[in-house]
């Protein structure tokens, strides 16, 4: 390609169409179609009746009907479920980010002698499968009077997500030069002041990473909400969506409509914050 380009006269910003670009475009187009197709399929399937769906899963709808959306909206309380999911997500994420930032900073900057012990216990905590903790958690929550409350989901969820989040934050703070903090100390800034005015402003991208990752985890979590929440009015979206999945019989268009409605909020968020989210996700993976 380079050889070819060098033989051509400089043509400014106008791109030349070469066989390579055609192949690249074709592959990319095929890839985009593959990624988009499930969404398109869900969207047009919601316009079918269940009978049409049973006749052929792939066929286009023969008539335009929004009955599936009516069924989805009246069949469950999707709006309420979404608000519940939002509260739990916000609560667990804020709690996790605060604890993880403070702990990650302390572990990275002060490097206490017992740090290995702390790290080991965090690692051990990460290895505990949530299923194993279910029964003791229910007993704990009941004794604390937190069973069937949002707080009762937020606290264990945060507890399970905090160890990984601490590691991400610690990995970030370790990369900061110690001189930064020493200089502030010499200037007479207090320890919390250093954290608040020097470390935190630099740490926003890392905190955002932790927040985004946690938001996705908490939003999609099924196990804790399904076990800890009993009242239909306090259910989260993933649990609420099971209102539409039958043991032997499922009304597919209605279920897909419910999924589409439930996906609107995260989709809108993603469209608006796409750049931040992708860079945040990468930020955790690559050290600059």
């Amino acid at each position: 390609m380079r050889m070819r380009a060098s033989t051509l006269p400089a043509s400014g910003p106008v791109r030349r169409v070469t066989p390579t670009t055609i192949i690249v475009l074709a592959v990319l187009t095929a890839h985009v179609l593959m990624v988009i197709f499930p969404f398109v399929w869900v969207a047009y399937s919601t316009l079918k009746t269940n009978k049409e769906f049973m006749r052929s899963v792939w066929a286009l709808p023969t008539s335009f009907s929004l009955d599936a959306y009516v069924g989805a909206w009246s069949g469950g309380a999707l709006g309420t479920y979404a608000m519940n999911s939002l509260w739990i997500m916000a609560g667990a994420t804020v709690l996790t980010v605060i604890v993880a930032t403070l702990a990650g900073y302390a572990l990275a900057v002060y490097r206490p002698r017992w740090m290995a012990g702390v790290e080991l216990s965090l690692m051990a905590a990460m290895a505990i499968p949530a299923y194993v903790a279910l029964v003791p958690l229910v007993v704990l929550l009941r004794n604390a009077g937190l069973l069937d409350t949002h707080l009762g989901v937020i606290l264990p969820t945060a507890a399970f997500n905090i160890p990984v989040s601490i590691f991400i934050m610690r990995a970030f703070f370790v990369t900061l030069p110690r001189e930064l903090f020493d200089a502030a100390r010499l200037d007479g800034t207090g320890e919390f002041g250093i954290f608040r005015h020097i470390a935190m402003p630099i740490a926003w991208p890392a905190m955002f990473t932790v927040a985004v990752v946690n938001m996705i985890w908490v939003w999609n979590d099924f196990l804790f909400p399904v076990v800890f929440i009993n009242s239909p009015a306090r259910k989260t979206l993933p649990v609420g969506l099971t209102d539409f999945v039958g043991e032997h019989i499922t009304n597919y268009p209605v279920m897909l409509a419910a999924i589409l409605i439930a996906a609107i909020a995260p989709l809108v968020l993603f469209v608006f914050f796409e750049r931040q989210i992708t860079s945040a996700l990468l930020g955790g993976a690559v050290k600059e």
């Binding site: 009941r142 009077g145 937190l146 069937d148 409350t149």
Partner: peptide
């Protein structure tokens, strides 16, 4: 407040 409500519901 949430704790208070929770305690009432729980008991």
């Amino acid at each position: 407040w949430a704790m208070g409500v929770a305690v009432m519901l729980g008991t």
